[in-house]
Computed example of a mutant assay.
Amino acid sequence: MAALVAALVVQAGDRPAWLAAILADRYRAPATVMLAALVALAAASGIAVAAGLAIAAMLTPAARDLLLAMALVLQGGGALFAQKPPERLARWRLGAFATSLLGLFILCFGDGLQFVVDAIAIRSTMPWLAVVGATLGGIAVLGAAAVMGERDWCRLPRDRIRQGGAVLCLMLGVIFGLSGLRLI
């Protein structure tokens, strides 16, 4: 559930959703873009969780809290900066599915959300559910963007959404940081 909520909050104002809207308009195939987004999100989240599992045994519970705090603070801090439009992938001639899959995977995998998903999985007793949660939360946002199209997606108050998500991530990051330091 934590990964699902994190994905909803983080992806709502982020570039992968904007790219999904662009590609859905370009190819006139929102369902294809949504399917590609689903695969891209699952793959990126799966890699993040696998990386987390590789280091989980080396971390104490306090270190796990601090890692989550750092991931949230970095995500929140990054969301406070102005967002530039995603590359439109206009020269990519791979077709709707392959262009969407590769473009969204690259954008999602380089996203701060994967660090947050990694840290959530490390703290979980069932870490693979973080893949499911992050994928479902992400596809809810990317799917909505694909259905809306770029014009309608860009009409949303994305800056305010990003700022709200940033404040939430920063607040939670401070709370987990203080908990990791055993100050609360």
Score class of each variant (00 low, 15 high):
residue 24 A to T: 02
residue 153 W to E: 01
residue 28 R to H: 14
residue 149 G to C: 13
residue 150 E to F: 09
residue 17 A to Y: 08
residue 161 I to V: 07
residue 32 T to Q: 11
residue 93 R to S: 09
residue 33 V to Q: 01
residue 74 L to D: 05
residue 66 L to M: 13
residue 47 I to N: 12
residue 74 L to Q: 08
residue 30 P to T: 09
residue 168 L to H: 03
residue 161 I to T: 01
residue 104 L to I: 11
residue 115 F to C: 13
residue 64 R to Y: 03
residue 6 A to K: 01
residue 149 G to M: 14
residue 147 V to E: 04
residue 57 A to Q: 06
residue 68 L to C: 02
residue 163 Q to A: 15
residue 85 P to V: 05
residue 9 V to P: 01
residue 174 V to F: 12
residue 63 A to M: 14
residue 176 F to N: 04
residue 174 V to I: 14
residue 102 L to K: 11
residue 20 A to E: 10
residue 112 G to V: 02
residue 137 G to P: 07
residue 30 P to W: 08
residue 134 A to T: 11
residue 183 L to N: 12
residue 180 G to F: 04
residue 121 A to W: 00
residue 104 L to M: 12
residue 77 G to A: 10
residue 40 A to N: 08
residue 14 D to L: 03
residue 45 S to A: 12
residue 123 R to M: 05
residue 38 L to H: 06
residue 98 A to C: 05
residue 49 V to N: 04
residue 97 F to H: 12
residue 125 T to P: 08
residue 44 A to Y: 07
residue 140 A to N: 07
residue 170 L to G: 09
residue 149 G to P: 11
residue 41 L to A: 13
residue 153 W to K: 02
residue 63 A to P: 07
residue 66 L to V: 09
residue 145 A to W: 05
residue 76 G to H: 14
residue 122 I to D: 00
residue 25 D to V: 14
residue 180 G to V: 02
residue 33 V to T: 05
residue 40 A to R: 04
residue 89 L to E: 06
residue 102 L to E: 11
residue 2 A to H: 02
residue 25 D to G: 15
residue 184 I to E: 09
residue 131 V to N: 01
residue 64 R to V: 00
residue 178 L to Q: 15
residue 47 I to H: 07
residue 43 A to G: 08
residue 54 A to K: 14
residue 94 L to N: 07
residue 88 R to E: 11
residue 97 F to R: 14
residue 167 V to P: 05
residue 99 T to F: 00
residue 156 L to I: 13
residue 59 L to N: 07
residue 11 Q to V: 11
residue 76 G to A: 15
residue 178 L to K: 14
residue 182 R to Q: 15
residue 135 T to V: 04
residue 53 L to S: 11
residue 161 I to C: 03
residue 152 D to K: 13
residue 58 M to R: 12
residue 151 R to Q: 11
residue 98 A to G: 03
residue 10 V to D: 06
residue 16 P to S: 06
residue 142 L to Q: 13
residue 164 G to E: 03
residue 96 A to F: 06
residue 37 A to R: 01
residue 92 W to F: 12
residue 82 A to C: 11
residue 1 M to V: 13
residue 112 G to S: 07
residue 115 F to P: 04
residue 141 V to K: 03
residue 106 I to L: 14
residue 97 F to S: 15
residue 181 L to D: 06
residue 54 A to V: 04
residue 159 D to Q: 08
residue 163 Q to I: 15
residue 80 L to T: 15
residue 93 R to M: 04
residue 159 D to Y: 05
residue 99 T to N: 02
residue 86 P to Q: 05
residue 150 E to H: 10
residue 48 A to Q: 03
residue 163 Q to F: 15
residue 100 S to A: 15
residue 30 P to Q: 10
residue 6 A to T: 04
residue 89 L to P: 01
residue 146 A to P: 05
residue 136 L to Y: 10
residue 75 Q to P: 07
residue 163 Q to T: 13
residue 74 L to G: 05
residue 158 R to N: 06
residue 179 S to M: 14
residue 153 W to Q: 03
residue 113 L to Y: 07
residue 49 V to W: 03
residue 146 A to F: 05
residue 174 V to Q: 08
residue 87 E to V: 13
residue 105 F to E: 02
